[in-house]
Design a protein around this nucleic acid. Structure first.
Lengths: 151, 151
DNA sequence: TATTGTTATACTCTATAACTATA
DNA sequence: TATAGTTATAGAGTATAACAATA
C-alpha cells in the first residue's frame, strides 16, 4: 500500500502553520512560479526577466542600480541577466551622457513585441492563480498585498 | 551626486507590476524571509526548519515523504535537513513498525523546547510583518491567502 | 513491480570581494 | 573618497538519476 503524501490523505494538522502568513506566502509563491513557467515558458521568460523587462518598458533609460534596488537583486547578478537580455536582442544598453558611469537600459523593438505578447498572457495567468477568489476578493487581496509590499 | 536607488526617489512607474500579484508576492516573501532571520536566527532556525519542526510537532510520527510533499521539498534535500536536525538533537528518526521502509519523525524534548521558544517569537514577528494592516485587515488577508494556498 | 529513503551530483539562485572607470 | 558597473567566485537552495531495502 502506498503511503499517502497529500495533506488531505494524511489528515495532517496544519492549523498552526496556516496562521503563519510567511509560511502560506511561501507556498503561494511556489504555486505562482510553477504557474508562471507553465504560462510564459513559451516566450522564454522567467519571473525575473518578466519583471526586469516590464520595469524597463515603463521606465525607459532606467539604470541597473535602480532595477537591482527595486527587484531586490544584487547588481552582479543583474549584470549577467542584462547581458543575456542584450545578447537576445531584447534590451539596449547605452552610456548615460549625464553620468558616464551609468548605463541606461531601454527595450529594443523585439523586446517591446515580446512584452506585448507577455501582457496578453498576464491577465489569464493572474485569474488562474486567483481562481478560488471572486472579483471583489481579488481586488481586496491585491490591495492588501500592496499595503505590505516593501515599496 | 548619487544616483537615487529607491522607487520613491526615482519616481519609477510600477503600476503595471503592482497589478501582477505574483510579483508583489515575491517581494513580500523576501521581506518575510529577511524578517524571519532577524527574529529567529538567535534560535538557529531557518524558514525551512521552522516549518519542518512545526509540522513534526503537530504530527508526531509523520514520515519524510509526507513532509516533502506538503512543504514542496524534494525528498533528497529533506533527507539532508532531517539528518542535520537529528545531529542537532532536535528530532528522532525511527523505523515504522507497519512499513519498515518508512521513517517516523518525532521531536526530542530539546526540539519541543526549541519550538516553544519559537512560538513565543511568532506572534510578534507576524505582527511586525503585517504592521501596515489593522487587526481586521490582517484576518482578511490571512483568510484570502489560505483560500489560494495549494492545500 | 512500486515505493521509501539514501547518496551523489548538477544546476540555479543568491551573496561577497576585488577591480575599472567615472564622479 | 564614493559610486556604477563588471568580473570572478563561493555558497545556499533546488532538481535529477541511480541505488538498497522493503512492500
Amino acid at each position: 500500500m502506498t503511503i499517502a503524501t497529500t495533506a488531505a490523505e494524511k489528515q495532517l494538522d496544519l492549523a498552526a502553520l496556516r496562521n503563519v502568513p510567511g509560511f502560506v506566502i511561501r507556498l503561494i509563491q511556489l504555486k505562482f512560479f510553477d504557474g508562471f513557467y507553465e504560462t510564459f515558458a513559451e516566450l522564454g521568460l522567467t519571473p525575473a526577466t518578466y519583471a526586469i523587462l516590464m520595469l524597463v518598458r515603463d521606465n525607459p533609460g532606467v539604470v541597473p542600480s535602480s532595477i537591482a534596488a527595486l527587484l531586490r537583486l544584487q547588481l552582479p547578478n543583474l549584470t549577467k541577466i542584462l547581458h543575456q537580455l542584450e545578447d537576445a536582442g531584447l534590451v539596449k544598453r547605452s552610456r548615460s551622457k549625464i553620468d558616464r558611469r551609468a548605463i541606461e537600459i531601454t527595450l529594443t523593438s523585439k523586446g517591446e513585441k515580446l512584452m506585448r505578447d507577455a501582457v496578453r498572457l498576464t491577465a489569464p495567468y493572474n485569474r488562474r492563480m486567483l481562481a478560488p477568489l471572486n472579483e471583489t476578493e481579488r481586488s481586496t487581496l491585491i490591495g492588501l498585498l500592496n499595503r505590505i509590499c516593501p515599496f
